[in-house]
Amino acid sequence: MTAVNLPDGRLTLSGSGGGYAEPGAAFTGRVAYAAAHVVADPAAENVPGAPAALDWDATLAFRRHLWSHGFGVAEAMDTAQRGMGLDWPAARELIRRSAREAAAAGGTVVAGVATDQLPAGPATLDEIRKAYHEQLADVQEAGAGPVLMCSRHLAAAARSAGDYLDVYGRLLDEADAPVVLHWLGPAFDPLLAGYWGADDPARAADTVLELIAAHPGRVDGVKLSLLDEGFEVALRRRLPAGVRMYTGDDFNYPALIRGDDHGHSEALLGVFAAIAPPAAAALRALDAGDTAAYDRILAPTLPLARHLFGTPTFYYKTGVVFLAWLAGHQEHFTMVGGLQSGRSPAHLGRLLRLADAAGLLPDAGLAAHRARAFFTTAGVAQP
């Protein structure tokens, strides 16, 4: 039985998922990282404010799923609830385990470097520098590529663009290899408003470009998550030769990755973890020069992505985990920090409709069984 009663009516799942192959080689035309979620231990006290407790087997199995499709894994980023339930001790262990798993599986992994071992609240610039340096050393020791994430502490403490240039400049000087700069906009985290020393993104971009120019060869790329396609294209065209643009735009990724006559964006996307099979098929088509197939495959994923990342955007992680559960990648819908309550049943019902339309549910019977259980607890009587 594949019928489910949703808050807005009945849905009979199509059973169209699961038709994508799982080639293991990396893509040739684009660099593509999927930012992966974490699987909570459902028997632990994963309530708001409690230390994060993970189901390590299921968490690492999901990463193997992503590597099997040819993606690199972006580890311990905001998709993994960094700053929203995943504390630094758990993140550090996650990075170490994921890097070991990547080495065994022949996959690639980059990992977030931040300052979240500091307590919430004010911190001095010196404390922020030390926190960043500590995490950078941990990530490099684990064997992952560093992604320098935005810091809530730095956003609160910095008084000018010069403070950002100083903190990041020292990090770039200490890094063993080129790093990725992560620019996460306030839609994903309101506490990062005014990052890089300006509320105006154009002025902030000047600071990012100044930082890159002052440290040639030290920046692999910029991961941009501002959900502004035009701004990303404009900044991409200003980047020095050899510095990549990694799109983090979960609203406009098909066009940004396809690119134009002046270039294209690589990818470091949370949505890729949710749509890995069709996204991999689309990137294979792009590798083969078949842009029509690329567009056709990704077209039904875009309405899902825009709903998944809808306002308030920072709760998109709830939808990612809901889809992973329905698709059979984990046995429960429990999240660290109790974040499974971050989206309403109405939102998740619409997400289920879009996932079915996009062919993301490989076992319609399993997805329907689990969805009926969930919506029953939400007060929606089932067939």
Rank of each mutant, 00 (worst) to 15 (best):
M1P: 12
N5D: 13
G15R: 08
A25H: 15
A26E: 15
R30F: 00
A43E: 01
E45C: 02
V47G: 09
R64F: 11
H65A: 10
S68Y: 01
F71P: 05
E75D: 13
A80R: 02
G85W: 07
P89K: 08
P89R: 09
P89S: 08
A90H: 07
R96S: 13
R97I: 01
S98E: 02
A99W: 00
A104W: 00
V109G: 01
A111D: 10
P122T: 11
L125Q: 00
V139E: 00
D166H: 14
D166F: 04
D173L: 14
P178E: 06
V179N: 04
L184H: 05
G185W: 04
G185L: 07
G185Y: 01
P186G: 11
G197Q: 05
G197T: 07
R203V: 15
R203T: 14
D206M: 10
L209W: 04
E210V: 01
L211S: 05
I212C: 04
R218P: 03
V219M: 04
V222G: 06
L224N: 08
L226D: 01
F231I: 05
L239F: 06
P240W: 07
D250M: 02
P254L: 10
R258K: 15
D261R: 15
G263S: 07
H264C: 12
S265E: 10
G270N: 03
I275V: 15
D295E: 14
I297E: 01
L302K: 13
T311N: 04
K317E: 00
V321E: 06
L326V: 09
Q330N: 06
V336T: 13
P345Y: 08
P345E: 03
A355D: 03
D356T: 09
A358Q: 01
L366C: 05
A368F: 13
H369C: 06
R370W: 13
F374D: 01
